[in-house]
């Protein structure tokens, strides 16, 4: 290096060829005439970089390959960029599906219960009882529960249809 030849009188942060007092050696050629003044050719960057002991910056060894524009053959191949994770399902959507299923199956179960009680129970002459009230409530609840449950399932499908995007 020129540093050792000149006794360390060049600033180690910059290429010695561009500092006053530098005399090129026999093997070294002059910098490209087309290059703008002050710019360092890329193939000379590694040569121009001072040793780490002089700079006292150990991390520069690791950061140097990243700063190069053209990777060396000794550099390890860059791993493929990780594929983006599929979007997580919306937890509220799952809750909606569960609620829809509960409403549909609950409505059908209530209808079964109301049918079985209705066939066993003779209401003539007994007046209004709590069982009759419960039966009437069950009958009135069955159809809306099943309807809303089915509508929730279809609504979730509509939401997915609206949010759907064609693959690139």
């Amino acid at each position: 290096m020129a540093d050792s030849a000149t006794g360390g009188r060049f600033d180690p942060r910059f290429d010695p060829r561009f500092q006053p007092g530098y005399t090129p050696g026999p093997k070294e050629s002059t910098p490209d005439a087309a290059a703008p003044p002050g710019s360092v050719p890329q193939h000379r960057e590694a040569e121009a970089a001072p040793p780490d002991e002089v700079r006292g910056d150990a991390s520069a060894v690791e950061t140097a390959p990243e700063q190069r524009d053209t990777p060396l053959e000794s550099d390890p191949p860059e791993p493929n960029p990780p594929e983006p994770d599929p979007p997580e399902p919306n937890p509220l959507e799952r809750t909606l599906l569960v609620a829809g299923a509960v409403l549909v199956f609950g409505g059908i179960a209530i209808a079964f219960w109301a049918n079985s009680v209705n066939y066993q129970y003779n209401s003539f002459g007994n007046g209004l009882s709590w069982q009759q009230l419960l039966l009437a409530a069950a009958w009135s609840l069955t159809a809306p529960m099943v309807t809303v449950g089915l509508a929730i399932g279809v609504g979730v499908m509509f939401r997915r249809a609206i949010a759907w995007k064609p693959p690139e």
Partner: peptide
């Protein structure tokens, strides 16, 4: 028959509603 009793009207409502949607 009980299943049909419980499902016929809701299925018609939701089916026609789905077509409308």
């Amino acid at each position: 028959q009980q299943i049909a009793d419980a499902l016929v009207s809701p299925a018609l409502y939701v089916g026609f509603g789905t077509i409308g949607g």
